[in-house]
């Protein structure tokens, strides 16, 4: 699975970086920094949680 950010929607709340630290960090403005788009199997649960928590509906988990 891959994690994708819709940059036109993201408001930089920074929440996702806390919930999916394996893949995401934050820049000084709070926008996510994608270290790795590939979500490991062990992290899928975290990724789902981040997707659900994003207040801007900016995250998507897609099958490769």
């Amino acid at each position: 699975m891959r994690i994708e950010v819709d940059w036109t929607r993201c408001d930089g709340h920074g929440l996702c970086a806390l919930l999916l630290a394996e893949n995401l960090g934050s820049d000084p403005d709070g926008y996510p920094v994608v270290h790795d788009t590939a979500v490991a199997r062990d992290s899928v649960r975290h990724a789902r949680r981040a997707v659900a928590a994003c207040p801007a509906l900016a995250l998507r988990l897609v099958r490769d």
Partner: peptide, 8 residues
Amino acid sequence: GQCGPCLF
């Protein structure tokens, strides 16, 4: 101006 990292 639609994407934060680009705008800022």
